[in-house]
């Protein structure tokens, strides 16, 4: 009985309080979600915050740095900028610097990227037969960074069981604690 003492509060609730408890949990999740979606709207990027997962951009960015991205359509892509892009067939976006840009008069752009810490450009990373990136591949451009703030994300990804245990614990805590 003592082991389930934390359920006492829940057992004493009436149906309105139980529903509010669920809503409370829903609102915590919703707030996080709405902040994320709000950032998407403001920055124009589908993923406004990313964590650097590799050392290919050292010494500019290290593993675990948090990047803030924007992706406004009207801003042109320029050589030297750091872009985050997706490659067909790869799940994880890549953060690299723009090396060459070709712009046509109709507004279409193709560009090549390279990691600062890599010896060669990214053509080997692109999909088979792909020589250039286009605007549609871009997730965003790095506009700000927070050193090492994303290290928790890396740890969570490396130890998924730890992540699920944390989430389950927090979820149960919120659901069983009244207000």
């Amino acid at each position: 009985m003592a082991a389930f003492g934390f359920l006492d509060d829940v057992m004493r609730m009436n149906k309105r309080q139980l529903y509010y408890q669920l809503l409370n949990f829903g609102m915590i999740v919703s707030s996080a979600l709405m902040i994320w979606k709000g950032l998407m709207v403001v920055t124009g990027s589908e993923s406004p915050i990313v964590v650097v997962l590799s050392g290919s951009m050292e010494p500019a960015f290290y593993r675990g740095d948090l990047l803030l991205l924007t992706n406004h359509k009207e801003e042109p892509i320029r050589v030297g900028e750091i872009v985050v892009f997706k490659i067909e067939g790869r799940d994880i976006p890549i953060v690299h610097r723009v090396l060459k840009v070709h712009e046509k008069e109709d507004g279409s752009v193709k560009f090549l990227t390279k990691g600062d810490n890599n010896a060669v450009d990214d053509r080997g990373l692109y999909a088979r037969g792909q020589l250039w990136l286009e605007k549609k591949d871009v997730v965003g451009r790095a506009k700000g960074f927070l050193p090492y703030a994303g290290i928790v994300t890396i740890l969570m990804n490396d130890y998924p069981k730890f992540k699920y245990a944390m989430l389950a614990f927090l979820g149960i805590f919120v659901l069983t604690h009244r207000e």
């Binding site: 509010y20 809503l23 409370n24 829903g26 609102m27 919703s30 979600l33 709405m34």
Partner: peptide
């Protein structure tokens, strides 16, 4: 409860 429900619905 109504205010919270609508808010969560939007999310």
């Amino acid at each position: 409860l109504v205010i919270c429900t609508i808010a969560v619905f939007f999310a």
